[in-house]
Amino acid sequence: MSNRRSDVTALVVQHHRDLQSWLNNADEVALQRFLNAHDAEFTLVTVEGTVATRAQLDDMFHGVGATAPDTTIEISWVTVLEASGDLQLLRWEERHSDVHGSSTRVVTGVLRADKWLSVHETLIRT
Rank of each mutant, 00 (worst) to 15 (best):
T50K: 13
R54I: 09
E93S: 15
N25E: 14
S118A: 07
A37S: 15
T67S: 04
G49P: 06
T108L: 06
L57N: 12
G65A: 15
I73P: 00
M60R: 12
G63P: 03
G65Q: 12
E94V: 02
T126D: 13
R112E: 04
M1R: 15
V45I: 09
L35H: 11
L89P: 00
A68S: 10
L44A: 14
D39W: 10
D86E: 13
E93G: 08
A26R: 05
A66F: 03
L35R: 11
D59F: 10
S97I: 03
N36F: 05
S103D: 09
F61S: 01
L19R: 07
M60D: 05
G65P: 05
V80M: 09
A55W: 03
E94P: 03
D86I: 01
T53P: 06
N24F: 01
L11P: 01
G85A: 03
V78S: 05
H120Q: 10
E28S: 06
A113Q: 15
T46N: 00
V51C: 13
A55R: 15
W92M: 11
V80H: 02
G49W: 11
T72W: 07
V51T: 10
H15Q: 13
V99C: 07
K115G: 03
L90N: 04
L23W: 07
H120T: 08
Q88C: 10
E121A: 12
H120L: 02
A10I: 05
R112F: 00
V45M: 04
D70V: 04
R5T: 13
V51N: 06
A30Y: 04
L11A: 09
T9R: 07
A113S: 15
I73Q: 00
G63C: 02
D70P: 02
K115S: 13
R91V: 06
D114C: 13
V80G: 01
Q32R: 12
L111M: 14
T108W: 02
L19Y: 12
W116F: 06
V107M: 01
G63V: 10
V47M: 04
S102W: 06
T79K: 13
T46G: 10
